[in-house]
Nucleic acid binder design. Structure first.
Length: 428
RNA sequence: GUGGGUGUAGCUCAAUAGGUUAGAGCACUGGGUUGUGGCCCCAGAGGCUGUCGGUUCAAGUCCGAUCACUCACCCCA
């Protein structure tokens, strides 16, 4: 009988990997909360229309990457390909603009895109997401990127660069788009087949084509940054100066184009060259018209998403293993000792000490081996002799020092020993 | 959706030009005189060689199909 496999591109995160996730999630929580963000959790499944309306009908995500299907009543549903749309929807639905405290949100969870998986790209992947509504001040754009930097620094991530750009507003982007299109059409024949197609569908995308031939032509193309309107120009200049004041390094990348239609003005990406074909660890930007377009109040918005898998892949390359809390292992010999050891194990745990015992009747040697494999700090040896004497043997696995420890009051005493052991270890 | 690469033990990999009972390291279990870890030694367990079909006296090895994984394109986190 053939065993059942997980769905392509959807991965199990096993216990030996989970500490990476917990570390990233815990760091994210503490930092985002400091910056005033509050967690929000929305369903992974939404009406298809939410995404097609927000992300854009002609984007790749909506055209070919969504997990979409009809439910039993024939309603079209989609597994979320990104988080912003859902959070905006929830904000509108619960009329959160009436709540003076609800402005900054964050969320983590799985996203789904139907693509061929490869390094750093999966059909189910996880994002850390932050969104702010109703603040147009460029100060916030800078603050958001600064927060991102603090977060990545806290994790000890190196080798990434912040790229920023401005996409202008609908008012200045439309004229530019036709300007660019005219330019591209003049060189039409020279472009690769992909760009021939982009030329019509989304001319801006020609900018991030990897074909050298196309890059050559595009060098002389009119740049969006040169043709954005006065207001957008001022906004972008302000963002840059705030970033400078926060000593946050960035590169202006006038060719950076994002894959979702709703972005306006400031956009940014965290770029790396250590993830194979993938270069974006995270990205985001302003989306001032989205809330209104989804039927809500006309509030501005800005946010970012970080790919957890990609972030963790990078952290793993840097190999910074976290340290574990001390573990006590109980080596048991004999039935009577097993009964007593069982109780002690539970008591240790209930007092906040990680403890493990041997439930099978293994030899002391094999139990010691196991304790070693588990990297136990202490082993409590409990056999018939100890039961008779009313005192167990306590072995410090590092120093190999072994002493007698009375069964009566063993848990508080052990707790004390561990605390002192930690104190001296911390000094060294 | 398109192209390349790879499928042998839990993991990493061997197996001469097709040729007996498919091996090794790590991991796992037990043991190396009474109840003491890491190193060392011994033993054990663990495989329908991804699946199906074809060629052959003989297929892990050659051919075809299929599935899976992987890398890349498109695009993105």
């Amino acid at each position: 009988m053939e065993s059942i496999q997980a769905i392509k591109g959807m991965n199990d995160i096993l216990p030996d990997q989970i500490h990476w996730w917990q570390r990233v999630e815990n760091t994210a929580r503490s930092i985002l909360e400091n910056f005033g963000y509050r967690e929000i959790r929305t369903p992974v499944l939404e009406k298809t229309e939410l995404f097609s309306r927000s992300i854009g009908e002609n984007t790749d995500i909506v055209e070919k990457e969504m997990y979409t299907f009809a439910d039993r009543k024939g309603e079209w549903l989609t597994l979320r390909p990104e988080a912003t749309a859902s959070i905006v929807r929830a904000f509108i639905q619960h009329n959160l603009q009436a709540d003076p405290l609800a402005r900054k949100f964050y969320s983590t969870g799985p996203m789904f895109r139907y693509e061929r998986p490869q390094k750093g790209r999966y059909r189910q992947f996880h994002q850390l997401d932050a969104e702010v509504f109703g603040v147009e001040d460029p100060m916030l754009d800078a603050e958001l990127m600064y927060m991102l930097r603090v977060f990545l620094e806290q994790l000890g991530l190196s080798g990434v660069v912040l790229h920023i750009n401005s996409l202008g507003c609908p008012a200045c982007r439309a004229p530019y788009r036709s300007l660019l299109q005219t330019f591209l059409l003049q060189n039409r024949a020279t472009f690769c087949s992909d760009c021939q197609r982009r030329l019509h569908v989304n001319p801006l995308r020609v900018f991030d084509c990897k074909v050298e031939r196309c890059q050559k032509i595009i060098e002389n193309a009119p740049m969006l940054l040169d043709s954005i309107c006065e207001d957008c120009r001022d906004h972008f200049a302000a963002v840059r100066s705030y970033l400078d004041r926060l000593q946050t390094d960035y590169e202006i990348n006038p060719r950076m184009v994002r894959g979702l239609d709703y972005y306006t003005r400031t956009t940014f990406e965290i770029i790396t060259d250590r993830l194979g074909a993938q270069n974006a660890v995270g990205g985001g930007g302003r989306y001032d018209g989205l809330m209104r377009d989804l039927g809500g109040p006309d509030l501005s918005g800005i946010g970012f998403a970080i790919g957890m898998e990609r972030l963790i892949l990078l952290l793993q390359q840097q190999r910074s293993e976290p340290q574990r809390s001390p573990l006590v292992f109980l080596a048991i010999l004999g039935d009577q000792a097993k009964q007593e050891g069982f109780l002690i194990t539970q008591q240790l745990r209930s007092h906040g000490i990680e403890a493990e015992m041997d439930y099978a009747r293994h030899s002391l040697k094999s139990q010691m081996r196991r304790a070693d494999k588990l990297a136990a700090h202490y082993v409590v040896i409990l056999g018939d002799e100890e039961m008779a004497a009313g005192a167990a043997q306590l072995r410090d696995m590092q120093s190999k020092q072994q002493s007698s420890i009375p069964l009566d009051g063993l848990v508080p005493l052990l707790k004390e020993i561990i605390r002192n052991g930690d104190a001296t270890a911390a000094k060294n």
